[in-house]
Amino acid sequence: MNIFRLAGDMTHLISVLVLLLKIYATKSCSGISLKTQELYAMVFLARYLDLFSDFISLYNTVMKLVFIGSSLAIVWCMRYHRVVRRSYDRELDTFRYWILVGACFTLALVLHEKFSFQEVFWAFSIYLEAVAILPQLVLLQRSGNVDNLTGQYVFFLGAYRAFYILNWIYRYLTEPRFTRWISCVSGLVQTALYADFFYYYFISWKNNAKLQLPA
């Protein structure tokens, strides 16, 4: 564990807490893409298949349970909670993400560290996470003004993988045999997809104005 990865995990945890806060405090999920939440639930379920087989550390196991539990809870809430579900932007959240899921799974069948069930699903989860934010970014553009908590949620979710990139650079420099090309390349693509969001987020912060993404 290094400071970059810890910062990344904490930033990721903060993004989840901000989203939970938004949903429970405002009893609303307006501006949140259910499709991105479902993609993230798939990402965690596919990535943490080793939850019971490989014990890394208490921290690792607890964080995996937190990410799986929170993503499923948010999906459940947005689908079935009688108050929250009414504020879901169903007609705006129309990204056909099964194309993404199919493409990522096909890529994982071709490009993986080892051809085993667990490794193929791990690679699938890495590729899928890189594009999982797309429905959310599309929804933000369509829904015009973005409330503060939603903007902060997306910001922290994008920032966490940027910390992971620093972690991979640090590990590459300090650990002789460290190579995680699948994670690194996907992480760069994932962070790049946030580039324009980060730009408009910074502008709104500098001008102390509402976050507006151009349509």
Binding site: R5, R47, N60, K64, K114, Y164, N167, R180, S183
Partner: peptide, 10 residues
């Protein structure tokens, strides 16, 4: 082939 080392990252 050697099993890949366990994934220690989240």
């Amino acid at each position: 082939s050697p099993a890949t080392e366990p994934k220690d990252e989240l």
